[in-house]
Structure formats: C-alpha cells, structure tokens
Write a protein that binds this DNA or RNA. Structure first.
Lengths: 163, 163
DNA sequence: GATATATAGTAAAGCTACTTTATCATTTTG
DNA sequence: CAAAATGATAAAGTAGCTTTACTATATATC
C-alpha cells in the first residue's frame, strides 16, 4: 500500500478494476439482487404484475389484524409520510385498505384485502422455493450456516466505535 | 398452508408479522445495509463526506488509466446517460475528470483525480477493516465459506426456468 | 468517395421511492 | 383547560435512475 497503483497492479492487464476482486459488500449485493429478482419473477408469474419491492416491504410490516401507519413506519425505518404514499399505491392495487382506529380518532389502521392476503401466501411459497433452490446450490447444512452467519452480521456495529 | 392465517399464527401474539421470521432475502438486505453503512461511516471519518454509494458504484468501474462512459455503463449495468450524470456529480466532487479519447473523437475518458485515487485507497483499507471485523464475528473459516457460498448465489437464475 | 448505418455522448423530461417542511386534527399531560 | 405531543396528510424537494430524442463522429457499403 505504498503507492496509488499498487492496488490495481494485478488487474490492469485486462482493463477491469476492482470489478474482478469482489468485495464482501458486492457479494451481498449481487446475491440480494438475484434473490429479489427471483421473488419478483415468481410473483409476476402468479399474476401480481404491478407489485414492486417497495410494496412488499410495506406489506411485510402489516399484521394480519391490521397495523397503524406510524407503527409500520417505525418497523420499516421510513417516515410515516412515505408509508402513507405506499398505502395509497397499495390501496389502488387492491392489496390493502384502511379503517379508522376505534381507540384513537387520529389513527388509521391499514389492513390486508383478500387479494393482499393471497399475495402474502404466494410470496411465502415462492420464498420457500427459492430457499430450496439455494439449498440445492450450496448444500443444506451450508445454507443453515449461511443464514446463521448472516444473522450475526445484522448486529450493529460491524466495526467498533473507537473514541 | 390451508388457510390465510396459518402463516402468521405463531406471530400474532406480539403484533409482529413476518418481521420476526427473517427470510433469506431479508438477512441479505440487513447484512448489506450494515456493511454499506460501515463503509460510508469509514469514508466520512476520512473526510469524504459527500460521497454516496451511487458514486462508489461509479468509481469501482473506472480503470486506473481511465475508462469510457459506455464501457462504465456496461460494467455497471446502467444506461450511459446515468453514468454521464454520475460523472458530472463526481467531477464536482473532484473525484474524477474527463479527457477526450485520442483514438475516437466521439468518446470521452473518465479518469480519477488525485483525490479520487485517494478515496479508492481509503476505501480498500476500510473494506479490509470491515472484513476483519466480520471475521472476528463469524470466524475466519466461516467468513471464507460465507464468501464462497455467496459467490455461488450470484449465478443466474436461482430458480430454474420451467416451460 | 458519397451515403447509410452504427456508435459515443448529451439533453430533457419522467419515474420511483423516498425526505423535508408545514399543517390539521385529535389526544394526552401538566 | 391550555399546552404539548402524537397520528396523519399535503406539497415540494431529492437521489438515482430510465426513456425519448438528439448531435457528432466513426465505420461499412455500394
């Protein structure tokens, strides 16, 4: 690491930079893209054509007996305005509907429609199929380890704060 | 899978839906977010304050001796217009600059500035530090396996096309 | 060597998935 | 009961793209 070109020295021959030496983040990103595209494809095949991943990430935070917008926002880690927008879209897609909260006049409960519930079920089946495909690729035991180790990397922070 | 509520039956008690049973995609997503945030934090600490992940994903496709916009677009899997926009931003951030291609009057070569090269070096150091942190968390051998298995999941498609 | 076609890049507008700022309506608190 | 907090919405702004449309240069064909 003594000069600028050293990092790339082994890569310049065929004109590809860090692209070939995949860093860990890149590995995660590509695997995730692949997984998400598989899910999207599966949903499309089941007739959920206009459902985007942003809609999925709304739906996954809705309880079967409904959830408030603010609660969804907290779970999803986005603003409640953003949730409001997604709810509006998912309402036009007939995936959710809203009803007033009986115990709080300000609040609104977002609930699944039948169609929305159907999507959730289909999604679970597709995810199970993807899991099976991944297991076949890396091995059953290895898949379990993969899950276990990835779960460890969800804990913050990866690098320790040093002051 | 006989009725709508079965999937959530075990989860309804504490009002959290699929949120608790993390699917594989979610594990990848959270791990990736964590990794990316660690990198962003590291870069910020080194003074690269306005650098976003979109800029990073431009820079990583630029060779040390420069690369054409079209070539970058192909490597990155985005349109050349998008690359053009990113190049404009990264130029104002003093990370890259452009020069005409001597062998093709239409083409433009995107090259690193000194500041841009410095960022690449810092980034590699930070990534190495994150790698070390991950190794400490999951184990050295396990980290190698993790990389190996994630790399397998980059291959398309995850689920086979059946017609 | 002129013409047709392909390629490199740019411009402008549009889209998605958000955020920020501001506001209104209820509810809770002191 | 007034003040502050909370749930939600509205409107505008932003990031990171794409689509459509264009210009300039290069290459291929006749």
């Amino acid at each position: 690491m003594s000069n600028d070109s050293s990092l790339y020295r082994g890569l310049r021959k065929d004109k590809e930079p860090s692209f070939r030496t995949e860093n860990f983040g890149r590995l995660l990103l590509v695997a995730l893209n692949n997984w998400q595209e598989s899910l999207a494809k599966g949903l499309q095949e089941k007739g959920f054509k206009d459902v985007r991943s942003s809609h999925i990430s709304l739906l996954r935070h809705i309880d079967m007996d409904g959830t408030r917008i603010t609660e969804i926002a907290e779970r999803a880690g986005i603003t409640k305005q953003a949730v409001g927008q997604l709810v509006k879209i998912c309402t036009t897609l007939n995936l959710v509907t809203t009803k007033p909260d009986k115990v709080d006049g300000r609040a609104k409960i977002v609930i699944f429609t039948d169609h929305g519930r159907k999507l959730i079920l289909e999604q679970q089946a597709i995810i199970a199929a993807i899991d099976a495909a991944v297991q076949q690729k890396v091995g059953k035991r290895e898949f379990a380890d993969l899950r276990k180790h990835l779960a460890l990397l969800s804990d913050w922070p990866l690098t320790e704060e040093r002051n």
